[in-house]
Simulated scan of single mutants.
Amino acid sequence: MEYVVFVGYENDAERKRVDYLLSKWAEKATVRKPGGLVFFIKTEKAEEFLEELLSKLEGDPREKVEVYRVEEEVLVTKTKKKTLHYTIDEEKKVVERFIGYLLSKLNASYAYSDAMAKVYSAYTRKGRATLKVLLRGDGKTEVTIEIEGYGDVVDFLADKIEEELKIFAGD
């Protein structure tokens, strides 16, 4: 099965991550990044458009133009989600500082806060994930960390966080 994939990216770092992925997948699939001009056109007059396009090119246009009929396919890939729960015998402020240290160690950056939790984004070699951190309590602190992402990144981050929190909590 062949696919044409359009990927929008916001910066050069994101584009490079996609380029790296394409290089990695070149061993598992046929991956080709066409040179020249690549575009998507939706029309009921394809023959008319192609005739006009071919008339604009020099040399043998059949050697320069490849046309594929595209049928949109919505690939449904669900995010993975994992929720970690801990009760730690420390004041909320102490736990909050440790969680901040742990998240910075995991290269997670603060994204925003909602009414209940702080939300962070983490970029790792396994991919990108969102972490939602909720802290409650006095004396003892209840910690809930929800990790959401695609692929291996969720389990990767969950393992790292569990390892560190077990040491911190004294388990």
Rank of each mutant, 00 (worst) to 15 (best):
W25T: 01
F168A: 01
A13F: 04
K24M: 13
Y86C: 07
D138K: 15
E72L: 13
S121R: 07
L54V: 04
L37R: 14
A117H: 03
Y150H: 14
V18Q: 11
G170Q: 06
K160Y: 08
E146N: 00
E148P: 06
V67N: 11
L22V: 03
S104A: 02
E148K: 03
I161R: 00
E72G: 13
F6K: 08
Y112G: 02
R15H: 09
K16F: 09
G8F: 05
L135F: 03
G127A: 14
F49R: 10
R62A: 04
E162G: 06
Y112V: 01
K16H: 11
E66W: 02
V4A: 09
Y9S: 11
F98K: 04
V7S: 08
E96K: 09
R17K: 10
S104K: 06
V18F: 14
D138V: 13
V70W: 00
E91R: 11
D12I: 04
R69Y: 12
R32I: 05
A46N: 12
I161S: 02
V67R: 05
G151N: 13
T83V: 10
L134F: 08
F49K: 09
L103R: 05
L131N: 04
I161H: 04
K24V: 14
T144C: 01
A111F: 14
I145M: 02
D155E: 13
R125Y: 14
V18P: 14
E71L: 13
Y150Q: 15
W25Y: 04
K118D: 07
T77Q: 06
L75P: 12
K140C: 12
I145S: 06
V18K: 04
E58Q: 08
K93M: 01
K82T: 08
E142I: 08
E66H: 10
A115T: 12
S109D: 08
F39L: 10
E91T: 05
Y86H: 07
M1E: 15
I41R: 04
K33I: 10
K132D: 06
V74N: 14
D171N: 07
V133L: 06
K82C: 10
G59M: 01
D155T: 10
L53C: 05
A29C: 02
R128S: 13
E142T: 12
T144S: 00
K16D: 14
N107Y: 06
L135W: 08
R136N: 15
R69V: 11
D152N: 15
L135A: 06
V31L: 00
A26E: 03
L22R: 00
L134H: 01
S55N: 07
Y3D: 04
V7M: 03
D89G: 09
K24Q: 15
T77F: 03
A111D: 15
I147H: 08
E96D: 07
E66Q: 04
A108H: 03
E142R: 11
G100E: 03
L157M: 03
D152V: 06
L102H: 02
V4L: 12
E146S: 00
S113P: 00
R17I: 11
E27W: 00
K28E: 09
L50W: 09
K93P: 03
T130P: 12
Y68F: 13
S121C: 09
E63R: 01
E91I: 06
G59D: 06
